[in-house]
């Protein structure tokens, strides 16, 4: 479903003549992902995980290499179809949706839950269909009367559930979870991960789970990519292989969590 091939990306560094230049962020990233799979991408802060996520959602264009979704170059896909309104892939709905880390800043504070959920459906009949929006809330185990509530009336865990429901609204094939549980406390984290697990089983979704928390990644995913300094440094195809990891950074990460 998703193929990322030799993706290179650098950002321009500001500064004086001697300091200015290019700062490489992604240095030849290659991996593949099957439909219905949950792939974990784990790495330190600043290693380029979220930048890779932005390449996959088509918001950043790599200087070299390409990212393909269903065989099509993401950067040349119709953005409306990619994110929501189902024009690019009729019948399937949107292709990619995202759940961000900071739930507070990823919703408009003036919006009620009804408007938040309707955002990716704008321009379609479903946007005004209260029963569809209620069904979305039921999917994330929230009561129907939450439709009229504002974001500040919800707890962190509830608001992140609304963000997950928004991500599911356009029936995507791939959901990108960018540190989606990192800012929640452990018990809420567990509830949200269980919810994601159940949703995957119910709807056959694919997840690309970007995180720095190895325990959360192993809870949800069966295949893990260890990411460091803009590269995939280790690929674990089965969790049983975690004990055979060779790369030093990946071993440090495992040892740190175990300690």
């Amino acid at each position: 479903m998703l193929q990322v091939e030799n993706v290179h990306l650098s950002f321009k560094k500001k500064g004086s003549f001697w300091r200015a230049g290019n700062k490489p962020i992604l240095k030849g990233v290659t991996f593949h992902m099957r439909q219905g799979e949950c792939l974990g991408l784990i790495g330190a802060s600043g290693s380029g995980k979220s930048t890779l996520g932005r390449v996959i959602t088509g918001t950043l264009r790599p200087q070299r290499g390409l990212a393909r979704l269903f065989g099509e170059d993401i950067h040349h896909m119709d953005k409306a179809g990619l994110f929501g309104r189902g024009r690019a892939r009729p019948g399937l709905g949107g292709v990619v949706s995202i759940v961000f880390q900071d739930y507070n800043t990823s919703v408009n504070p003036r919006f009620a839950v009804r408007d938040i959920l309707a955002e990716p459906l704008r321009g379609t009949k479903l946007a005004g269909d209260a029963s569809y929006l209620k069904a979305l809330l039921a999917q994330v185990r929230l009561p129907a009367d939450y439709l009229g509530r504002k974001s500040f009336e919800l707890s962190g865990g509830e608001l992140q559930r609304v963000c997950i429901a928004r991500a599911l609204a356009a029936k995507p094939a791939l959901v990108l979870l960018d540190e989606a549980v990192s800012s929640l406390d452990v018990s809420v984290q567990f509830q949200v991960l269980e919810l994601l697990k159940n949703l995957k089983e119910e709807s056959g979704l694919s997840y690309l789970f970007i995180s720095h928390d190895l325990a959360a990644v192993t809870h949800l995913c069966d295949r893990i990519l260890f990411f460091n300094d803009g590269r995939v440094v280790e690929q674990v195809d089965s969790l049983a292989d975690l004990v055979h990891v060779k790369d030093c950074y990946s071993r440090q990460l495992i040892a740190a969590v175990l300690a």
């Binding site: 192993t218 809870h219 969790l239 975690l242 004990v243 990891v245 969590v257 175990l258």
Partner: peptide
């Protein structure tokens, strides 16, 4: 789940 798979790592 993590401990079950990586517990021997330490």
């Amino acid at each position: 789940r993590f401990l079950a798979y990586a517990g021997r790592r330490a």
